[in-house]
Computed example of a mutant assay.
Amino acid sequence: MTVIKNRAFLKWAGGKYGLIEDINRVLPQTRRLIEPFVGAGSVFLNSDYDEYLLNDVNADLINLYKLLQSEPDEYIKQAGELFVPQYNDKDRYYDIRAKFNESTDTFERAVYFLYMNRHGYNGLCRYNLKGGYNVPFGRYKKPYFPEKELWLFAEKSQKATFTNLCFREIFKQAKSGDVVYCDPPYAPLSPTASFTSYSGQGFKLKDQQDLALMAEQTSQSGIPVVISNHDLALTRELYQQAKLEEIKVKRTISQKAGKRTKVGELLALY
């Protein structure tokens, strides 16, 4: 029997849609799933827990999720108004990007965030050091408005609590009956291959080390932890206390399909 998977409404570098079967195979069925790095939410959307604690350091992302949880009708209506031909235009895109960077209105920023995600280059989410969104125009023929996916997320989000905290704070909230799944910004394959600035702040080696240490300590309290990352000498050293599973996944960062090669990934099971 073919299992129907649910797609996230956001395009997301490093999204876990292609790894759902592997991740679900190793995630224990407990009461609550905690995701310190929820991203686009593919694991959340394709798992079945009583409760979810979903966190991300990207405040715009979490703000969007909270609005979709509490005001889905109005949010989806207003977001859809930007998915018309006249807004699929380079000048319009840069005008909206500028308005987003100047705005302090949470609803307005959430509407613009989805627009830029679907109209910007390759679905990237990136900020400069001053916190300004700086992804260029994507030049797509007809950007897709993910209305069905938005409603699916809004419905399932009623089981979730959303937070915008450091992952270290989220680990402190884990208790018996939880399982923690971590999809951190990946250790780069090369010095120029890192997509760690989507929150306006990088994810450094010290962060990778702290995450591995907290996963080990949390598992010793009887709370299972699973971490995804690139299969590198560095990550194998970091996760040496975990059971490691090797998997292959096709990455979609490169815009040229011929360059989307499979790279090794690890699932570290604590």
Results as ranks from 00 to 15, higher is better:
3 V>A: 13
4 I>C: 04
5 K>W: 07
5 K>E: 14
5 K>M: 12
7 R>S: 14
7 R>H: 11
8 A>Q: 02
9 F>H: 07
10 L>R: 04
10 L>T: 04
11 K>Y: 03
13 A>H: 01
14 G>V: 02
16 K>N: 06
20 I>M: 03
20 I>Q: 04
21 E>S: 08
21 E>C: 05
22 D>L: 01
39 G>S: 07
40 A>G: 15
41 G>R: 06
46 N>F: 01
46 N>G: 03
54 L>D: 02
54 L>V: 01
56 D>Q: 07
59 A>F: 06
62 I>A: 07
63 N>L: 04
64 L>A: 12
64 L>T: 15
68 L>S: 03
70 S>Y: 00
74 E>C: 09
75 Y>M: 08
76 I>H: 06
79 A>Y: 00
79 A>D: 05
82 L>N: 08
82 L>F: 09
85 P>A: 09
86 Q>K: 14
87 Y>T: 15
87 Y>S: 14
88 N>S: 10
88 N>D: 13
89 D>Y: 04
90 K>H: 11
92 R>L: 00
99 K>Q: 14
100 F>H: 11
103 S>A: 15
104 T>K: 15
104 T>S: 14
106 T>V: 12
109 R>N: 11
109 R>I: 08
110 A>C: 12
110 A>Y: 04
111 V>T: 14
116 M>R: 05
116 M>V: 09
117 N>S: 13
118 R>T: 10
122 N>Y: 04
122 N>F: 01
123 G>C: 10
124 L>E: 04
125 C>M: 09
125 C>Y: 02
126 R>E: 12
129 L>T: 15
129 L>A: 14
130 K>W: 00
131 G>S: 13
132 G>F: 02
140 Y>V: 10
144 Y>P: 10
146 P>D: 08
146 P>H: 09
146 P>R: 02
148 K>S: 14
149 E>W: 01
150 L>C: 10
150 L>D: 10
151 W>G: 06
152 L>R: 02
154 A>V: 08
156 K>C: 04
156 K>Q: 09
160 A>W: 00
160 A>P: 15
161 T>L: 12
161 T>C: 12
162 F>A: 11
163 T>W: 02
165 L>K: 13
173 Q>V: 02
176 S>G: 12
180 V>C: 07
180 V>Q: 01
184 P>Q: 12
184 P>E: 11
185 P>L: 05
186 Y>H: 06
186 Y>E: 07
189 L>G: 12
189 L>N: 03
191 P>E: 10
192 T>E: 15
198 Y>F: 12
201 Q>I: 11
203 F>I: 08
204 K>C: 10
205 L>Q: 15
206 K>A: 15
207 D>T: 04
208 Q>T: 08
208 Q>W: 01
212 A>C: 13
212 A>I: 09
214 M>A: 11
217 Q>F: 00
219 S>K: 13
221 S>R: 14
222 G>M: 06
223 I>S: 02
223 I>F: 02
227 I>H: 03
227 I>V: 15
228 S>L: 07
229 N>K: 06
230 H>M: 10
230 H>L: 11
232 L>K: 05
234 L>K: 05
234 L>Y: 03
239 Y>A: 07
241 Q>P: 00
242 A>Y: 02
244 L>M: 11
245 E>D: 12
245 E>M: 09
245 E>W: 02
248 K>P: 08
248 K>C: 13
251 R>T: 11
251 R>I: 04
252 T>E: 07
253 I>Q: 12
254 S>T: 14
255 Q>D: 11
256 K>I: 01
260 R>Q: 10
265 E>K: 01
268 A>S: 13
268 A>E: 03
270 Y>L: 05
